[in-house]
């Protein structure tokens, strides 16, 4: 009995505590930068798409909400011809971001994606692609990879030795 009364008094005193509620629509909560929210596709510092359409994100996705089709430009650079994420399926697990070898697909702290029509939750590439580099500024996959693309020949990448001429056989 005494114990119960003590409990009740403690609860009563909580009347004068600070409220912990964040009045959401009026008052935005502070969301940590590594929050797993809306998925975006980023660009490298040169302004080109980072995505190389390797399908690893689609393979990693546990709910199969990512669909894409790989294609190449005339210089051999791979990119997705379409890239579609169905956010009505997405569980925001972040596996796609972990799987991505080029840091192209990233999860952002934005979570306000409510829609009245379910169809509007299917995001196409133009909805996903942003102009910036996202969480990894400065990283440029093609600047460290050996593949030759437009404006960068073999051997031009960072810390890359020029290719060996196999036909000369001289050190």
């Amino acid at each position: 009995m005494w114990n119960s009364l003590k409990t009740m008094w403690t609860i009563f005193l909580h009347m004068f505590r600070r409220r912990v509620t964040i009045q959401y629509p009026d008052e935005k909560p502070v969301i940590p930068p590594r929050w797993r929210g809306r998925i975006i596709l980023s660009r490298d510092p040169d302004g080109e798409e980072r995505c190389v359409a390797c399908y690893l994100c689609a393979a990693a996705c546990p709910v199969d909400c990512i669909a894409l089709q790989a294609t190449e430009d005339e210089y051999g650079r791979r990119y997705p011809s379409f890239f579609r994420i169905n956010f009505s399926r997405c569980i925001f697990c972040g596996y796609c971001e972990e799987a991505c070898p080029t840091d192209a697909i990233q999860l952002t702290p934005d979570f306000e994606m409510g829609e009245y029509d379910r169809k509007n939750l299917v995001y196409e590439k133009e909805d996903l692609l942003i102009d910036g580099t996202g969480k990894y500024p400065g990283y440029n996959f093609y600047r460290v990879a050996g593949l030759a693309i437009k404006g960068k020949d073999k051997g031009d990448a960072q810390d890359e030795a020029p290719p060996v001429d196999l036909h000369r056989l001289l050190p």
Partner: peptide, 16 residues
């Protein structure tokens, strides 16, 4: 009372 109760419960649980 249905409103008062919810408000008071909130007040005692550090909510609104």
């Amino acid at each position: 009372l249905s409103w008062i109760e919810r408000r008071l419960l909130g007040v005692w649980q550090d909510r609104y």
